[in-house]
Design a binder for these strands. Structure first.
Lengths: 188, 188
DNA sequence: GTCTATAGAAAGATAGAC
DNA sequence: GTCTATCTTTCTATAGAC
């Protein structure tokens, strides 16, 4: 039996283990679909420590969200290659169980009002604003938001709803369709 | 005080009241965000009747989903007017509290595995298949799914996440952007 | 630093009274 | 046909032992 008696351990290590377990659990089930007991168990510690170190479930979610989105990779490309590259990235993306997935982290908790506000701010600052300042021309914020919106809809259809019509066997026709769409938002 | 003693009422009327209350409650909070007690209260009856008449919460959700999607309006248009008309519809769409909204009904419950399966089938049959058979050319299923995906992403950004960048003040620039995107899927 | 134990609230479902 | 009462489970959060 593990974790039965008081462990002589490092608080930072425990805190990090809880955070990592939370990122995975929230990605998989959303903030309302997982309990602190479950997260604590995955982290190999007691549920009381979750509240001890993070103050509560909502604050744990906020901590899990910090730095989740990193857009730097794709935005290093020249603008005339972006649409095709992002389309290729989208169709090649796969999801695995029991892993941290920023898009799932955001999507699966977006209907919880408190979590939604946290997600909204994080995405605005670390996704939309970043895309907007990378774009040229008019209506950058709007076009940046449309890129994010397209990605979210795609994720929903393909990985959440598991629509047959968007299955992996259609990747070769899907990619150019996505690229054309993205090109509209890049051009403005 | 209302509904305190046994009411001499019609079972069909009660059942219908529960169903209507469920459509609104599920649209607003999703299947996991609302309890049967709350739905029963809105319907003006007792919580026990929900299970009595529908068998349980999940079956109530299934009943609420039946016939929720009706795409016939937009598909009466000629194909060369569709993209613009649908874009206009999308930007003009508003949501009110305490109303039945099919898109919210689907979206807000899609992360519940049982509800997701029901939603998936309903959308496949009554949305994607309908669009697909209306479209011409190759890859109809995929293009139809992309139209739905775009709509879902738009709904998420604008009405769920309430992104500033997609606020109503941008409708005039948003509409042509959506229309161009939709035109890609109509043309194929 | 970590755990046990429990308070307190809310949920889904059901048996049975009226 | 409708309601009351209750069983059972599950959840967040916390007090306090070790």
């Amino acid at each position: 039996m593990i974790c039965k008696s008081n462990k002589p351990r490092n608080a930072d290590a425990t805190k990090e283990a809880i955070l990592e377990a939370a990122r995975i659990a929230f990605s998989e089930k959303g903030i309302d679909g997982v309990g602190v007991r479950e997260i604590a168990e995955a982290a190999g510690c007691n549920a009381a420590l979750v509240n001890r170190y993070f103050g509560g479930k909502e604050q744990l979610f906020a901590a899990a969200l910090v730095g989740a989105f990193d857009m730097s990779q794709l935005l290093e490309l020249p603008k005339d290659q972006f649409a095709e590259a992002m389309a290729a990235y989208m169709v090649s993306k796969r999801t695995e169980h029991k892993t941290f997935d920023p898009m799932f982290l955001a999507l699966r908790s977006i209907f919880n009002p408190s979590a939604m506000e946290l997600v909204r701010q994080e995405i605005q600052t670390h996704v939309t604003d970043v895309y907007a300042s990378w774009l040229d021309g008019e209506n950058r914020q709007l076009r940046a938001a449309m890129i994010g919106s397209l990605f979210a809809g795609f994720y929903l259809s393909r990985f959440v709803m598991c629509s047959e019509s968007m299955g992996f066997e259609h990747d070769e026709t899907l990619a150019p369709l996505l690229a054309k769409t993205l090109q509209i938002y890049v051009e403005g």
